[in-house]
Design a protein around this nucleic acid. Structure first.
Length: 321
DNA sequence: GATATTTGACCATA
DNA sequence: TATGGTCAAATATC
């Protein structure tokens, strides 16, 4: 994990430099770049402290504290990068909101991330919405051709206040009416919600579900060192789950890298980390990674994350943790 | 009154 | 032209 982080820190810094310089950036973007780099440097500092801790187990500094700090640094960098991207490229939504554009017209620009993932989950009592930690506002509903159930369209409540473009579509499954298919489009940029959401989600899990989730990671944990022994499987999964979101953000940040890659290992990794839980009612509650272009199919254009995937492939035994 | 949801209409795309 | 996604006025809820 440490090496991954160090690698990412270097990679991101490098890619930021490249990307920003290619865009003939203005002073504002330079400032933004500095903030991201500063954030990454802080993360790097935490990594070295953690490494130091591993060498000297007697150290009083909490490994968990350091790890969460590293993750936070990672989160912040991602958020800053995604926000920056949004400001660099004016979104179609912003164009629509432009008062000078009176006509009710939509642009043909496609969303930066189409299918991020599809979650199949249980219905929450009395509502068709899932508590995924984010607040959503319904803006439409459509009958879908060939489907018995209509599809609900939700956008982030903070769309106008924070410019968050996250959108999700919720549709009751035809096959299993007690399940809902949730498709997430665009990433949240309303800051600080990654951990919040996942934490909230973890709280909503029953103990039974918690128990069922642990064995999935068992083989990984067996290889872990003492430092990670106390880390809950939930946290491990959440980190990786977040990684999925970041994957999208990184991809949309579009660093070009023509190298080809082998995603098989990554897929296997993700499959192993897929939190599949079967509840007493027999309903499967799982997260299905369905990033169509980059994982299921052979990727064409790369991002720095493809390189990260390779790193993850290489460190699949997670012996560093 | 503020905020959220519903729903018919509009628009882009295949 | 059919379909899916979004808008926005009307309506409901807090």
């Amino acid at each position: 994990m440490l090496y991954i982080y160090i690698y990412m820190t270097k990679l991101i810094s490098h890619q930021i430099h490249q990307s920003f310089s290619n865009m003939k950036m203005k002073e504002e973007t330079l400032m933004e770049e500095k903030r991201v780099i500063k954030e990454l440097e802080q993360g790097k500092e935490l990594v070295s402290r953690l490494m130091n801790n591993l060498k000297n187990p007697s150290s009083k500094e909490s490994n968990m504290f350091l790890i969460s700090g590293i993750l936070r640094s990672y989160e912040n960098s991602i958020v800053m990068m995604s926000l920056d991207q949004k400001t660099l490229k004016r979104s179609p939504e912003t164009k629509r909101m432009d008062p000078s554009n009176n006509k009710k017209r939509r642009t043909s620009e496609k969303k930066t991330s189409e299918k991020v993932k599809i979650c199949v989950g249980r219905e929450q009592e009395g509502t068709s919405q899932f508590d995924d930690g984010f607040s959503w506002r319904k803006y439409g509903q459509k009958d879908i051709h060939g489907s018995k159930n209509p599809r609900g369209y939700y956008r982030c409540t903070h769309r106008f206040t924070r410019g968050c473009l996250a959108v999700k579509q919720v549709q009751k499954s035809d096959a299993d009416p007690s399940c809902y298919e949730v498709k997430y489009l665009e990433s949240h940029t309303c800051n600080g919600n990654f951990l919040l959401s996942t934490t909230k989600h973890s709280v909503s899990l029953s103990k039974e579900e918690e128990r069922n989730r642990v064995p999935k990671l068992h083989h990984v944990r067996e290889q872990s060192e003492d430092t990670i022994k106390h880390m809950k499987s939930e946290e491990l999964m959440l980190s990786l789950d977040d990684l999925e979101n970041k994957n999208e953000i990184f991809r949309t940040f579009s660093f070009s890298n023509p190298e080809t890659e082998n995603t098989t290992g990554w897929k296997i990794l993700m499959e192993n980390f897929t939190p599949t839980t079967t509840t007493e009612s027999g309903i499967t509650n799982e997260l299905i990674y369905a990033s169509s272009a980059s994982v299921a199919n052979s990727p064409t254009d790369d991002s720095c994350f493809s390189s990260l995937k390779n790193i993850l492939d290489l460190s699949y035994d997670w012996s560093l943790m």
